[in-house]
């Protein structure tokens, strides 16, 4: 249950804060979710990483699909030199995912540290 809560809460918080904070809001969401939802450190990482990557991946994939991947194709060739939209969508989802996961770990480890 805690796994699932982190899984879903982290991307929701990240997105909500992203409405008025810059891109690093996802790190803040990770810190808070990791810090306040006690799990084994490994699960903290996995839940927030997977949840954020998945939710962002779906959202970005949807934006790109509705754009007929016009932008994704161009940006993909520009940034990764690869044709096709999938790689750039994956990278765009993995960045907030990893950032959320590692920030959540930081939050979790910090909680463990001060509880000692």
């Amino acid at each position: 249950m805690k796994f699932f809560t982190s899984f879903i809460l982290c991307p929701i918080m990240a997105y909500a804060m992203g409405l008025f904070l810059p891109w690093w809001s996802v790190a803040v969401a990770g810190l808070l979710v990791g810090g306040f939802i006690p799990q084994k450190v490994g699960f903290t990482f996995l839940s927030t990483f997977l949840g954020t990557t998945l939710v962002y991946g779906i959202l970005i994939g949807l934006v790109s699909y509705n754009n007929d991947h016009i932008l994704a194709n161009r940006i993909s060739q520009l940034v990764t030199k690869q044709p096709g939209p999938s790689v750039i969508i994956l990278i765009s989802a993995l960045i907030p995912g990893l950032l959320a996961g590692i920030s959540a770990m930081t939050g979790r480890l910090f909680t463990l540290l001060i509880r000692k």
Binding site: Y15, L59, N67, V79, I88, I91, S92, P96
Partner: peptide
């Protein structure tokens, strides 16, 4: 992710769903 010192772009912002290039992906 926030600088261009190591990567050619500040990918954190550039590929961000809410402020990066995805905002320029116009709906069909």
């Amino acid at each position: 992710l926030g600088t261009r010192k190591f990567l050619p772009l500040d990918l954190g912002a550039f590929l961000s769903l809410q402020e990066g290039v995805w905002q320029n992906a116009e709906h069909r």
